[in-house]
Write a protein that binds this DNA or RNA. Structure first.
Length: 483
RNA sequence: GGUCCCGUGGUAGAGUGGCUAUACAGAGCUCUGCAAAAGCUUGUACAUCGGUUCGAAUCCGGUCGGGACCUCCA
């Protein structure tokens, strides 16, 4: 496979460090709310990537995605009396860490549900570590960074000394940083912590009143507090995958500062040259041509779209219609188009199963068409892979009436679906038809067989008024509810 | 202020220095009592102005437009 590497700003041939095994770390969600479309794009992207590594390149994938369950927002929203506290989270207590855990567990479960309805398999993950379960490891790393001269404590917090680090390391490997032109922004002014330099970032945040905290001792000094944002990924990726691992993923916004700082922490504290060999970042999503935001009214969660009647797999499909490295314009028209296109191929699959007399889900052991595999292998070019897939189906349209060919095409589609995961190879779902509808349909079929067209048309209209459409086949009919 | 992307047909969206995806929508045809399904065919596309070149939508530059990032947003 060839993958774009943010580290080198180019597409490079990819092969794992360990023979046949890819170690991949994906920055996961901060569980303070349910996932929105933008998050979903990121997760669908990494899922496609890890599936392609398995199904196209044949690697085993050790996939880790973290759960950030401690940060400003989770602390704010889990605080006693928070309006965002929900009944299913249980009762709030005096134990602030227990409150934080209850709050974040709720959204962690939501998140996992969202992943699964989007076709992401939980058994594809090796681990989904929570930040708060790795406090010891983070503290160890912080001590090591400080001991190595790249960190300092100040007013109860611990900071990473970017200036010192940059003396002996390269800082700005994932992102071109122009320190001289840092904009004087509100975020910098708003930071209440005391850093020596604006470019320094926090490793450990000193305890504030009414916030959950963990004890921490460094150089004999007691510094109760909580971990900074970047430290968790450094510690957990090292613990679970070892350094350096093969691929680190996240949204483009994470290139800087998050990933740059993660990388620096690993190099400074674990004394490695690299945290990961490949860094891959998915571009953002726009909705109806605009950046998704609550104020524009184009902000959607997966739940929102489901409530509007959209199938999550159509959403998954719509999210993979563009290259992961380009801004994707999600529109309801493109969602409809995705639904239609996905449904047509699904229908083809069912027709082929009929043609091949396959009545249950079975792996036919097919092979992915080479041009489709090549497209996936070319930096995960899903649009190209889809185009080749459609052409493959068109080329083999006679499979609908050729049992042998039907098996072959089905086998190929199964391999393609190992990556896309948008179709099903189980039998065509049976639709419950009310007895009266079935009765009318039978009557119409009789009339039609007798060439009594006016009666047949009358009965079709009657069926339509009951909400059903009747489609005549060669020697039988099918009924479908009108949508 | 700085760094960097992007502008492709009605829509979404690949790709590429000459052979011009793909999908949805539209049009036509085949099939069908009609319809549906399915299949086939099909169109006006590469923001703009210059330059390089035998040839550019593809490379370079200007312009216009859109966007991202610049310290906890995927």
């Amino acid at each position: 496979m060839h993958l774009y590497n943010t580290l080198t700003r180019q597409i490079e041939p990819f092969s794992p460090l360990s023979d046949g095994i890819v170690r991949m770390y994906s920055c996961g969600p901060t569980v303070y709310d349910v996932a929105h479309l933008g998050n979903m794009r990121a997760f669908v992207f990494v899922d496609l990537l890890q599936r392609a590594l398995r199904a196209v390149a044949g690697y085993r994938v050790r996939w880790v995605m973290n759960i950030t369950d401690v940060d400003d927002k989770t602390i704010r929203d889990s605080a006693v009396g928070s309006a965002r506290w929900r009944a299913p989270m249980g009762e709030q207590s005096d134990d602030l860490r227990a409150n934080l855990r209850a709050y974040t567990m709720f959204f962690e479960e939501e998140f996992k549900r969202d992943l699964q309805v989007l076709g992401i398999r939980m058994d594809h993950f090796e681990a989904m570590p929570r930040a708060t379960d790795y406090i010891d490891e983070m503290q160890h790393l912080i001590r090591e960074i400080v001991r190595s001269g790249f960190g300092y404590a100040s007013e109860g917090s611990v900071y990473f000394n970017v200036g010192a680090y940059a003396q002996s390391h390269s800082y700005g490997r994932l992102f071109t940083i122009d320190t001289a032109n840092f904009r004087e922004g509100v975020r910098i002014d708003a930071d209440e912590y005391d850093r020596e330099s604006v470019s320094d970032f926090v490793l450990w945040k000193g305890r504030k009143d009414s916030e959950p905290y963990w004890d921490f001792e460094i150089d004999g000094e007691s510094l109760p507090g909580r971990p900074g944002w970047h430290i968790e990924c450094s510690a957990m990726s090292k613990e679970l995958l070892g350094l350096p691992f093969d691929i680190h993923t996240g949204g483009v916004d994470l290139r800087f500062p998050h990933h740059e700082d993660e990388l620096a922490q690993c190099c400074a504290g674990y004394h490695v040259a690299d945290q990961a060999r490949f860094w891959m970042h998915n571009e953002f999503l726009e909705v109806e041509g605009k950046k998704m935001s609550k104020s524009l009214g184009n902000f959607y969660t997966l739940r929102d779209l489901e409530a509007m009647g959209h199938d999550p797999l159509d959403i998954r499909f719509a999210l993979m219609l563009g290259s992961y490295r380009a801004v994707l314009n999600f529109t309801f028209e493109s969602l409809r188009a995705a639904a239609t296109a996905r449904g047509r191929t699904q229908n083809l699959i069912w027709d082929l199963m009929d043609s091949a007399s396959i009545t249950e889900s079975v792996d036919l052991g097919g092979a992915m068409p080479e041009d489709v595999a090549a497209a996936f292998a070319d930096d995960l070019n899903v649009p190209q892979a889809l185009a080749r897939t459609y052409e493959y189906c068109a080329r083999n349209s006679d499979a609908r009436t050729d049992a042998v060919k039907a098996r072959e095409v089905l086998g190929a589609l199964q391999r393609i679906n190992d990556v896309l995961a948008v179709w099903t190879f189980t039998t065509r779902p049976t639709i419950d038809v009310p007895a009266n509808v079935r009765d009318l349909a039978d009557q119409r079929w009789t009339a039609r067989t007798a060439k009594d067209w006016s009666e047949a048309d009358r009965l079709r209209n009657e069926l339509a008024s009951l909400g059903w459409s009747m489609k005549d086949g060669k020697d039988s009919y099918t009924l479908q509810p009108l949508s």
